[in-house]
């Protein structure tokens, strides 16, 4: 997947932050890259269609827009699919991963307030009978601010 043309790479690498907040942002980007607005739009559409670009949009800081935590469970293998589905069923769960560890199910719970986050964790514990390890963020040394794709 390293065969993207340079313009596409510049669009992905150069605009992960500071996307222009002006009425015609794609025209601003186009001017900076020395191409026209319609070319920028059509490249972005292609990148999105091919799956290389998830979207152009806002990345929210979960701890400032409500409350969130990372939680983990040690689920017996035979029950993993069922419990994972149950956990994913909560609208408040936005990431859910199976990982190789004794704690094999990892998920992020986000809600408008901390009380609801704790309620979700308690409900998962109660309904599954599996303890939930609550690992809230205490300090961020690096947030996801985008990172260079490093094409080769």
């Amino acid at each position: 997947m390293t065969t993207l043309p340079d313009t596409a790479r510049s669009l992905i690498d150069g605009f992960q932050r500071d996307f222009p907040l002006s009425p015609r942002p794609y025209a601003v980007i186009a001017a900076r890259l020395g191409i026209d607005e319609e070319t920028v739009l059509s490249i972005l559409r292609q990148l999105e269609a091919s799956g290389v670009l998830s979207r152009v949009g806002a990345v929210v800081e979960p701890h400032r827009a409500g409350s969130s935590t990372l939680a983990a469970m040690s689920v017996p293998p035979y029950a993993l699919s069922q419990i994972a589905d149950f956990v994913s069923g909560f609208a408040e769960v936005n990431h859910n991963y199976e990982r190789e560890h004794r704690l094999n199910l990892w998920f992020v719970v986000h809600a408008p307030n901390g009380a609801r986050v704790r309620q979700v964790l308690r409900e998962i514990e109660y309904r599954t009978g599996v303890p939930v390890v609550d690992l809230p963020l205490e300090e961020a040394f690096r947030l996801d601010l985008g990172f260079p794709v490093q094409w080769h």
Partner: peptide, 27 residues
């Protein structure tokens, strides 16, 4: 746009921009 700018300043929004799918890019 004014509200987006304010949310960026307050840190509610970390960034606005391209969100690559690193998985599709070979990562």
């Amino acid at each position: 746009m004014a509200r987006l700018r304010r949310m960026l300043e307050k840190g509610v929004i970390r960034r606005i921009g391209a969100v690559p799918n690193h998985y599709a890019l070979g990562w």
